[in-house]
Amino acid sequence: MIISKITTQKKNKSRYNIFQNVNGKDEYVFSLHEDLLIRHYIRKGMELSDEQIQDIKKEDAIYQYYTLSINYLSYRMRAKSEIAQYLKKKEATEEAIEIVLKKLEEERLVNDLQFSKAYVRTKMNTSNKGPNKIKQELIMKQIPEVYIEEALAEYTAEKEVEKIIKQMEKKLSGNRKKSFQQQLMQMKQSLMQKGFTHGAIETAAQEVDLSVDEDEEMDALRYQGEKLWNKHARKHEGFQLKQKVLGSLYQKGFQMDLIQRFIDEKEEEL
Rank of each mutant, 00 (worst) to 15 (best):
T8V: 10
E162P: 15
E217F: 06
Y155T: 02
R222V: 15
K170I: 13
G45V: 12
N71V: 11
V245T: 07
E95G: 08
L32Q: 01
M192F: 02
I263V: 08
M46C: 02
K44V: 11
Q189I: 08
D55V: 12
I53P: 02
L37Q: 01
E169M: 10
R76A: 11
D60P: 00
E169K: 07
V110R: 00
K135L: 14
S31A: 07
K166P: 12
L241M: 10
Y28Q: 13
Q183C: 10
L101K: 00
G195F: 06
K266M: 15
G45K: 08
Q142W: 04
K188F: 01
K188V: 03
I259R: 05
Q183E: 12
K266H: 02
L246H: 12
K170D: 09
L113T: 00
I134C: 00
K178E: 08
K44Y: 04
K133N: 10
A200S: 12
A92S: 04
K159F: 13
K231S: 04
V208T: 05
E150T: 03
Y16L: 06
P131D: 07
Q136I: 14
T197H: 11
G238Y: 00
D112C: 04
K117V: 06
V29T: 04
L210S: 03
A220P: 02
K44F: 09
W229P: 00
V212C: 01
D55S: 06
N230I: 08
Q243W: 14
M77Q: 11
R39V: 10
Q181C: 08
F239L: 15
N230Y: 05
A61P: 01
I18V: 07
L32G: 01
E269R: 09
S4P: 01
A205I: 13
M1Q: 06
E207I: 15
E149M: 12
Q260C: 02
T156H: 06
K129S: 08
I62E: 08
R76N: 07
L258N: 06
A204N: 01
A96Y: 09
N23M: 11
I3F: 02
A151R: 05
T93F: 07
G253S: 06
K103E: 07
D213G: 02
K11H: 15
I165Y: 03
E226C: 11
Y155K: 03
K117Y: 07
L104N: 00
L172G: 05
F30V: 09
S49P: 01
K13T: 09
Y147K: 03
Q20E: 13
K123L: 12
M192L: 11
T7I: 14
Q142R: 05
K171R: 15
I2M: 14
Y41P: 00
E226S: 09
R76P: 04
E91I: 05
A118S: 13
A96W: 07
M185R: 15
K244F: 10
V120E: 01
L138F: 06
Q182E: 11
K178W: 14
L270K: 11
D50T: 11
K177E: 14
E106M: 13
Q255G: 14
K133M: 11
Q186H: 08
R234D: 03
L48S: 03
I6T: 04
I165C: 09
L249S: 01
G199F: 15
K177H: 14
L249V: 02
L221C: 04
N175Q: 13
R76E: 05
A79W: 00
L191V: 05
M256L: 15
K88D: 13
I2C: 02
E82G: 05
D26W: 02
T197S: 13
R222H: 10
S190K: 15
